[in-house]
Each structure stands twice: as C-alpha cells, then as structure tokens.
Write a protein that binds this DNA or RNA. Sequence first.
DNA 1: CTTTGACCCGAAATCGTTTGCATCAAAATT
DNA 2: AATTTTGATGCAAACGATTTCGGGTCAAAG
Lengths: 337, 337
Amino acid sequence: MAEVNIKYLAEKLKLSPSTVSRALNDSYEISQPTKDRVIAMAKELNYQPNPFARSLREQKSKTIAVIIPERINNFFSQVIDGIEEITQEYGYHLLVYSTHENVETERKIVSYLLNGRVDAIVMSVSSQTKKIDHLETVYSKGVPLIFFDRICQEIPTTKFISNDYENGFKATVHLIEKGCKKIFFLMLSKEISIGRERFRGYQDALKKYGLPYEENWIVQCSQSEEENIKLIARILYGLDRPDGILASVEKLAIATYHAARETRLEMPKDFKMVSFSNMKIAGLLKPSLTTISQPAFEIGSEMAKLLMKKLTKPNQPAFENKVIQMPSQIDFRESSN
Amino acid sequence: MAEVNIKYLAEKLKLSPSTVSRALNDSYEISQPTKDRVIAMAKELNYQPNPFARSLREQKSKTIAVIIPERINNFFSQVIDGIEEITQEYGYHLLVYSTHENVETERKIVSYLLNGRVDAIVMSVSSQTKKIDHLETVYSKGVPLIFFDRICQEIPTTKFISNDYENGFKATVHLIEKGCKKIFFLMLSKEISIGRERFRGYQDALKKYGLPYEENWIVQCSQSEEENIKLIARILYGLDRPDGILASVEKLAIATYHAARETRLEMPKDFKMVSFSNMKIAGLLKPSLTTISQPAFEIGSEMAKLLMKKLTKPNQPAFENKVIQMPSQIDFRESSN
DNA sequence: CTTTGACCCGAAATCGTTTGCATCAAAATT
DNA sequence: AATTTTGATGCAAACGATTTCGGGTCAAAG
C-alpha cells in the first residue's frame, strides 16, 4: 500500500518534514511559493494525513460517540441525521452504538470510550438504567457529555428533551375532552426520566379534571413485543378495560394496534389512543394514529451545534447543568377522535 | 486528566515499558509473577490503552465504516444491527455515515476513509451513483470493501443482496394472477443495480404471461417525497392509469398511499400494489401492504462474519468477486388482494 | 558597520504503543 | 570448569504527525 506520508513528501520536495507539515497547515512561517509547491505535490501524490498520528499528537479524535437504546426507531434515526448535518461540516466522525435497552451493554460501550477514542458523547440512556456510576465515570473523566430524550438528571450537564410534561398533559386533556373516563398509561420502565415527565403530565391532567386513576392503570411493559401485545390484549379483554390509552413510546402504540386486532376492538369506537411517536406514516395506519412527535432532527442539530462550539473553539466552559426543552407537535388523527 | 499510560505503570512497578506492554499482551517472554503484578496494577489504576497509539503502531483501527443512503429506513437500521451484533464481540467499532442519496456526499465520505481510519468499508451506494471512480479508488487502495443491497457490480468484491430478480418476478406474477393487466413499476433511479434486478424480474414475468408494457409504465421517481406524490397522483389521475403497481423501494409505496388518498382511489379495489419494504408495520396500514422484505439483520451479520474472518485471522485472501443472495420473504396482504 | 527584525527553514522532541535486539543471570550441558 | 542454553527483562527504534527551539539570511534602520 506504500502510504505517502509527510516524510516521503519532504524527500520528494527536498524539504524537511516540519516544513511540509507547516506548509500544509498554512503556517505563517512558510513562504507562499513553498506552500504552493508543497500543496501541489500533496495533491499530486494524493497525500492523506494519518488520523491516528494526528490524534495521538493532538490528543483529540474528531470523533463523537452517539449511544442510543435502539436503532429501529425513527426518532433516533432523525436525531442522528440532525447531529450529522452539523458535525459533517466540521469534519467530525460519528461512532454509533446501540445498547438494545440493555444496561450491561451500555456499561460496556461506555467503558470503551474512556480512553480518548471520542471527543464527546451524546446519549439517550437505556430504559433499564438505574445505577449510573458508569455515567458518573464518564463525567468525572471530563469527557463532554450530552443527554437527550432519555436523560440522566443526576449528571450535571446539558440535556435536551421536548416539553414532555406539557404534552403528556395536553394529550390526556385531549382524551378527556373526547369523553374518555378510564385512561391508561403505557410505559416502558419507571427508570426512564422521560417517562416520568410524560407521566406527571398525565397525572396532573386527570387531577385537574377530577378524574380518578388506579395503580393498575399504569402499565409497565417489557422489551418483548410479543409479551407487550399479550399484556395489553389481556387488559383490553378485562372488565375494567380502558376507554383511552396514552402510550409513552411508539412501540407500545404499535403493540396496542396488534392487541386491538386480537381482541377485535376498534379504535376510536371502543377506545381511543394517543402516542408519543415520530413515525412518519402515522397518518396511514388503520386507524390513523394521533401522535405527539418530537423535533428530532432539531434536537440532534442543536446538540451538535453546542458540541462543535465546545470542541472547536478555545477556552470553552463545561456544559451547563440545564435541561433544554424543544417543542413537540401534536397531530390529531382518527385514533383519538 | 493525567492519563495513566504504560510509562507510568512501568515507573510504579519499577519495570520497563516494554515489559509492561508484553505482560499486558500476555507475551510468553514474561514470567507469570510479573504478569500478575502488572495486571493487578493496571486494574488498580484503571489503565486504558490509548487506541491511537496502538492504531498508529499496528496500522489498524478496529473500526469499520458503514455507508448507507439514508438512515430513516428500517432496512438499513436492521442491517446495521446485524453488523453490530457480530463486530461488537470482536471489539470493533462502527462509524456510520449517511449519504442522503447524494453522490457528492458519498465521494466526500469515501475520501475521508482512505487514510487508514477504518479497516474495512461496508456500503450501499446512493441511487445517483453513476461514476464509480471513487469506489475504484477504495478498492485499489486495498481497503476491504463489501457492498450490499445497492451494489456496484463493477468492483470485483463480495456483494450481498437478496434474490431480487426472483422476487420481482414473483411479485409481478402475483399481481397478474390477481387480475392486473397494467402493472406499473416505480423506481428511484436507473443507476441502482438493485433496481435493475427487480426490474428484470418484473419484465420477465410480464413477458411470460404475454402482457405488454410501455415505456411510460416505468416510473422514475426522485428524492423528493412531495414530487413523488405529485408524480404518482398524476399517473393515477390519468386515463392510462395502472391497475397494479410494483414499488421497488419502500418510500415509493408510501408516496403511493398518499397519492391514492389524494386521488380518492382505493387499494385494492382501484389498483393493487406490492412493494419491496422492510417496514415492520406494513400489516397495520390502511390497507395493509403486501411486502417483499429482505433478511436485513442476517445480511448484516453475514457481512460482519466475513469481515471479522478477514480482519482477525492471518493470511486471509481478498474477498471473492461474487454475489451472495439471501432469500427474501413475501407477505401477502390487503393491498394486493 | 552593527543592530534589529522579518522571513524561511531544519533538527529533534513528543504523543503512547509495540517489538527487534541486546543484556545478564541462572541453569543446563559438554 | 568452561561453555552453551534458557528465561526474564531492558533499551531503543519505530509508527506519522505537530511543535518547540534555534539557526541562518537578507534588508532596512540606527
């Protein structure tokens, strides 16, 4: 493969490696004619600097890690698209990892990243994450860290979410106004902070309208689609079945569609549903699904902007400990009508 | 941040860096007691080897690039999941890039990867890719390269696809058997090899059943969803409108749903449709969509297995110039009934 | 005629690992 | 007893880029 490196360029040009390096980096110490010669030769030989030598020397990698709980989810794909939109301009690379909602995997991935392999980490924690010492380690090592969607409140850094509380509230009010009296709340796990916010909105809306809710209306689902369908079907078969459902994540809405089909119940006649979801084709479902969708792309690009500012400008402070809320959008469709 | 490195470990242990390195790499030249001491100390100080120093020295990065035309597509997400499943075990990292179906972006991304940043590239080319000199460069530089789905026939390496010809054929036959006489074929671009195979299957099926087809039944769509909807709607409004549609990619099927809605035509009454798609919720659409879905996860994991074999074992030959076909699955649903 | 400063360039150290070769004691062999 | 072998370790050179330091030239200024 005979890589062409700086030394080789220097030889060809009868210059020293340092001069070549400086010329390529447009140093003021090098005369214009020399620069031109060097650049021309570099182009001719198609010189590509070795990224590892550079990273080793400069102690930075121009690489960012993105850790998400699952890939097969439009929301996360859109967020990554948003991140890439910005980072690509700056020549940064993206290492993407999926934890598959598994804490152990999450811990392992994070541990790979503590050796300087990446300049920063952007992540959405797994739904099973309870102990957060691995995240504290990242923080204490000084690796810039940003959370989004599934955030970890305990770590004092910047977090991006959408106005989950507000939309949990609005969605519930919407169901109430459509006449629902028994509104169930489907969630993945108590551990997810995001679920909590959406849940608080739900609770407060019920309270405001003087509606009751019982413990078993809060349905804790699992990772298994099959089990979730069974669980929800059982609930729909039950005597105490809901006339309204608020699904805190997309996959639970999908499971509900399957469960409804199994139990031969029809939305919105037998029960109504609203779901948090960034599915593009919510409008093509049968029935079309009322969704609360997050500005995923913008969340990604905003995070990336913040990152790029910190990584490419000198003397930037650590990320502030704050939560940035981006507005979601509710699209009313048949499922809740 | 005071990174703990080998030199520091050596000092602490009163050993030379070389001994420490060898001990950590479990070299036969080092005595067991010394190894134990070194390993214990490394664990205590939480030593993490610097990946760049190692990559620089070893001339390999333990990183693989995955280049896809778009992220918001279940097929590609599943493929990446499949790749990760295997590579993670071997401690390999995944750099993921999206070209957004843009050749220029594709060229730029590829050029970033010619400097040893990655040990291999797995890619699905953009629909606009016509000139392939950038891919030839990758190949000639000796970077291991595997194509999937949108393959580039001209490069002599291993390619993974599903039995596109066969399924294009079967899907068309299915539509014919359901009574369709005017079957249109929706494609993204003539450049995509994959489209060609599917198209050949379509053509041959028509031929076999003695059905005609006209030039303008082959619809070339664009990247813009909006334009595609308009285009398809215009076709559906037309006098010469199809009674069957074979969509070669998922996004065109979605566009067709929107166009049908606009023109108030109903599937499968007014026309029937089959689409290549890995959408999980095809069964929940209105009407549910008959799909040909690829074994995406397996395509990913098979590619990764091949890669890992080449990268982790000594003296492996270059990838054979062959096309590996994985069987797709057809799920018949309402849209074509 | 010296000094100053602008300008151009090279030698060598550095980043953290790995590894070919040298070293040196103890054990084994002649 | 002298020599070879073995086993365990250290020295120093890579890998390829950046950067500190320092040297030299040449023209203008003092």
